[in-house]
Nucleic acid binder design. Structure first.
Lengths: 118, 118
DNA sequence: ATAATATGCAACTGCATAGTTGCATGTATC
DNA sequence: GATACATGCAACTATGCAGTTGCATATTAT
């Protein structure tokens, strides 16, 4: 069997998925992608955890490139950054496509077993 | 400000993202979605870690519904399960759509500032 | 039966992360 | 200047997880 190598583009999306893999962070993303630029205090309203915990989650999301902050007076506003999430979306689509192709190849192989696929 | 509530369908996809958030697991998914049903030993070939570690990663992926196993003789074959990944893909598309809508609303508000959007 | 292969189970280490509390700092407001 | 508000920083706890090692069990091959 050939040694399988995963495309580097897919590997780069792992941190994005990891950032989205927490319910609290997923909630924050959902709130921010509704459009506004919200402060930490405002974002804490929608949760049950501390402001400090929210700050840490925002840092994780920022590290993954999913949000970015804008200083404004004594507030620190956060807004959604769609670029990385679009990359992740395209990665999932690529996997789906590859799966469909594999199914098609398998089906064709079953229908014409004399043709060896290599 | 209104208390924001994230749709339950999005929250349910958090474990899927968490499962995809590890480079090794992402690699396993990529290998399996290429079509075959592979044994644990075969899947370990493509990595630098132990067979036991691969087994644990497969358990996480199975818990998230991304793969499932089929016992066959002394082997345990694993294959890709596209359903959950499609859900995750649709979740990301939903977020993208919501973001685009928010941008359009904002743009319309800027172009016609007399119309208050509420 | 024996040997080789494929996997399972359990204990253990190390490290990352979620969450907290307490206090300090900067910024409006009166 | 004093007060209230928004955030930053640091220390600490607890839990989970990635990964390992060692040994046991099941299955195929000789």
């Amino acid at each position: 069997m050939r040694k399988p190598r995963t495309p580097a583009t897919l590997q780069k999306t792992a941190p994005v998925f990891a950032a989205l893999g927490d319910p609290t962070r997923l909630h924050l993303v959902a709130v921010l992608c509704a459009g506004g630029a919200l402060s930490i205090a405002q974002l804490t309203m929608g949760t049950t955890i501390t402001r400090q915990a929210v700050t840490k989650h925002l840092a994780v999301l920022a590290e993954a490139g999913l949000v970015h902050d804008v200083r404004q007076g004594r507030e620190r506003l956060w807004e959604f950054e769609p670029a990385r999430l679009d990359e992740a979306r395209r990665s999932l689509e690529a996997i789906s496509r590859q799966w469909d192709q594999a199914l098609r190849r398998l089906k064709a192989l079953v229908e014409r077993p004399d043709r060896t696929d290599h």
